[in-house]
Design a protein around this nucleic acid. Structure first.
Length: 155
DNA sequence: AACGTACACTTAT
DNA sequence: ATAAGTGTACGTT
């Protein structure tokens, strides 16, 4: 399988996505774009639509049932528009919050594994390369989620 | 109420 | 081998 890269805009940043057409291999954030396309759903998500990227196949999940693998699975259960804390995830699979933080830091495919929805018990937590991305994503999801509710109520 | 520390796991040095 | 990294709960001061 051939892994191809591409990028799309996300606010002030670009999202670089490497995919073989079905499975996402790597996602990272950069201030510069690169040539190439990204999967349709990812582009929609970046455009602010409530797309659920957590069903996307990713190398982060399929590979193993290690602690990191379990953490990534648990994090994928967090619904669009809501959050969980490092401690909650840790408790869920029987480890400590620090390991969860480390797993998030090493997350090969952000967005597909929604690590931005994992926050600290007393604050937002961390995010590389820029905490502003996490804030923006959470803010965007909150707003989009609200719009969904309003639209639903109106029917 | 602020401070220090133990805790658990993986990757990179 | 070992250090260090998106944290948190709990004991001590």
């Amino acid at each position: 399988m051939e892994v191809k890269g591409g990028s799309c805009r996300l606010g002030l940043w670009y999202v670089h996505v490497w995919s073989d057409g079905t499975t996402i291999h790597r996602i990272r954030f950069s201030k510069t774009g690169i040539e190439g396309n990204v999967p349709e759903q990812v582009r929609q998500y970046c455009a602010g639509q409530p797309v659920d990227l957590t069903t996307f196949p990713t190398i982060a999940i399929s590979s193993d049932d290690s602690v990191y693998g379990q953490i990534y699975k648990a994090v994928r259960e967090i619904p669009y528009g809501s959050t969980a804390t490092y401690g909650e995830i840790a408790l869920h699979i029987g480890t400590v919050p620090r390991v969860v933080g480390q797993a998030m830091a090493r997350n090969p495919t952000p967005l597909v594994i929604p690590c931005h929805r994992v926050v600290g018990a007393k604050g937002i937590g961390g995010f590389s390369p820029d905490i502003g991305i996490k804030e923006m994503l959470l803010d965007m999801e909150r707003k989009t989620f609200q719009k969904l509710l309003v639209a639903k109520k109106a029917t």
